[in-house]
Each structure stands twice: as structure tokens, then as C-alpha cells.
Nucleic acid binder design. Structure first.
Lengths: 111, 111
DNA sequence: CTGGTATATCAAAAATAATTGATTTATACA
DNA sequence: TGTATAAATCAATTATTTTTGATATACCAG
């Protein structure tokens, strides 16, 4: 849904840009499998897709799909090294979204 | 999707209960219209549905639907007063989820 | 009780998102 | 070059969520 929300600027404080941006980030977070991927990346630092597939029991195309959603929301980063793509958390972005309490749950190293 | 995620307890730190619980909360947040409702409630404190309908241009049944989702995720509270239902934020719950930065965007009074 | 307002709920339709298996692209290396 | 592995993408299917309009429920005032 790319629809623009009607402006309520006289009442609200969040801009349409805010709404759109955080909708995307919360959508990316709104899935158990993706939360689990985030949690794995938090513990293992940097992981390639081929290492992730056996850890989280999931076909490769499905994993790529979920990684892409996290990537597009800027919650994770990707670095290409030859044949491999290494994924890692975008910690500063996540810390800008999640409470300290939640960071402790999903990014335990940051506690 | 009520599916249980397979246990990866040797690797991850978040429990299945965590995953399930925060999935629901992030789902509730993952919608521009609901983020806007939260923002309105933050500014206006306590509002009945009939006051909300004209502010946010939305049919009443749709508004009730979105309020229900926020309510079930425990992000807002409902208080019945006669014919009216007054909704307000569950501020402590929201602060337990959102970073200070995000609270400033959506719950400006808490800044 | 009757009529009116506030709100929730329901079932059907529409829109979006997730899953799957197959295919493509890219790189590595024998 | 030919083969193998890593990973992304695609199109079709399935599942989930959202929207809509209609109806039901609850309370209030006359």
C-alpha cells in the first residue's frame, strides 16, 4: 500500500515521511522468522546465507526473501566477498528504533 | 500464522514466547494508519471513537478494526464511559518497545 | 417502550505478503 | 572451457490482512 495518508498536521507531530519510513521498518520487524534472523546475526556477528540456511531451517530462496526485506528496511547490512554474501546487523539503526529493553532481548551483546 | 518457530536455543537468545509476543506488537505498529492513531492519542491524551473518526478520515468500522489491533497488542487502553469508549495510549508499554528517539517522533509529550 | 447515537462485529471482497520450486547470475577453480 | 557452489530473482500459488457495507449490541433520553 503506497497510499499517502491525509495530512493532519495541525494535530499530529509525525510527518508523512516518518509514517512511511517507520511503517517499513516495523513491517520488517513484524515477523518471527525475521526477528530470529536478527537474533542470530546479533550472536554470530557476520554470516553468509549458506551458513544461515542450516541454522534456521528454511529453503534458500525463502531466506533470501526475508534478508531482502530486512536489508531494504536498512536493519541489516550486506557485504559481498567473492561468491559469498555476508550479512550483519545495522546496530545503530536498530538501536535508533528499539528500546534498551528490546535490545537486550534481541541484541544481547549490546546489554 | 500461529506456527511455532523451531527451537534454536543453543544459538539464539530470544525465546519463542519473545518472538511471538514482539511479532504481534510490531505487526500492530507496522501500519501508517495505526501509527497515526498512536500519534493522535499521544497528542490528545484520551479520545472517543466518535471524535477520532472526523480527525482521521476513516469509516467507523475500519477505525474500530485498527483500534482493536492496537488494543490486542496492549499498545493502547480502552475505558468505557456510558455510551462512549475512550481510548488512550499504554505509554509504559510503548516505552518498553520504542527507542527514545522514536518516542520523540510519536509520543512528543514524553520528550 | 421508542428512537437515536456510539461502537463492535460480521461476512464477503480486495489487497498484500509469504511460500515454493525453478531458473538465472555470478564467481571459483580444475 | 566446463562444472560446481552461492545467492538472487521470478512466476505461480497460498495465506494473511485490510477494507467495506450491513447488521448487531449497548446505552441514553424522551
Amino acid at each position: 500500500m503506497k497510499k499517502e495518508i491525509p495530512l493532519l498536521n495541525t494535530i499530529t507531530t509525525a510527518s508523512n515521511q516518518d509514517l512511511e519510513k517507520y511503517e517499513q521498518k516495523f513491517k520488517a520487524l513484524a515477523d518471527q522468522q525475521r526477528l530470529q534472523i536478527i537474533n542470530i546475526l546479533a550472536v554470530k556477528e557476520s554470516v553468509c546465507v549458506c551458513d544461515l540456511t542450516p541454522i534456521i531451517d528454511m529453503p534458500q530462496s525463502k531466506l533470501s526473501y526475508h534478508l531482502k526485506i530486512l536489508l531494504e528496511a536498512d536493519l541489516i547490512k550486506k557485504e559481498k566477498q567473492g561468491t559469498w554474501n555476508y550479512y550483519s546487523l545495522n546496530v545503530s539503526e536498530l538501536k535508533g528504533i528499539l528500546s534498551d529493553q528490546l535490545c537486550c532481548v534481541f541484541l544481547p551483546s549490546s546489554c
